[in-house]
Amino acid sequence: MKSRPGGGRLATYAAVASGGFRRYATYRLATAAGVFTNSVFGCIICFTYLALWQERPDIGGWDAQDAVTFVWIGQSLLMTVALFGGGFSDELADRIRTGDIAVDLGRPVDLQGWRYAEDLGRSAFHLLGRGVAPTLVGALLFSLAWPANPLTWLAFLGSVTLAVTVSFAIRYLIGLGAFWVLDVRGFVVVIGFVQLFCSGMVLPLVVFPAGLETALRLLPFAALIQVPAEVLLEKSTGWGLLAALGSQLGWAVVLLGAGRALTRHATRRLVVQGG
């Protein structure tokens, strides 16, 4: 059978993405509990930041309102970019470990493309299900800095998509690690903590000493939280916005490329474990 032009493939990936969305949408109670947790943590972090900004107003060039808004952006993106891992990568590693990956490789679809589509679906659900509601809670309790230019929302959505892509590419690499090490859970935990700190989730990168901030911005993790937050806070505008999105795109291309190469390598010397 000849492969059909782009339309057919795109429909396939759209169906996979919608499946990814629905997989997570099934768990309504978990989502409600998550919204509650995000809201509570968001409030706690807001009070902490407000205390910091009272001591050091204008730290990193941000005012207290920026800082509080950053908290709710972070809470919204925490699950969207799966900062603590999870989603498909645990499953991928698990399927490699048990040999179920044989079923996936026996399908006429690209493994990475397939998983990416599914993860986009998942992230869309998490942005809507776990992002919007806590942010509304935040908006009720605190004064948030909304963008002055409505187009900023569009740029933010693009930046979040790129953030999800970078996050996907990292998790895909970790999941593939199961081809070489039997248990990748240790990696997942370590990378989770690294991402927590380096993405700006704990504290916005702007409050760190200049040298450390520059170093952290050179890593891919800033693309997960710090960069999209700065887009929405309109800290990155004009050329700065292009540079911000460009840096995300750069990391996405590099990391996805690495994932592709590794997939090829793994499939080539594939020894499906078990069975």
């Binding site: 997989r23 997570y24 099934t26 768990y27 048990t98 179920d100 044989a102 079923v103 026996g106």
Partner: peptide, 16 residues
């Protein structure tokens, strides 16, 4: 052109 069933492996979506 082929179908594969591995008795101890799953090709279905667990949550769906």
């Amino acid at each position: 052109r082929i179908g594969v069933v591995f008795g101890q492996r799953s090709g279905l979506w667990w949550d769906l």
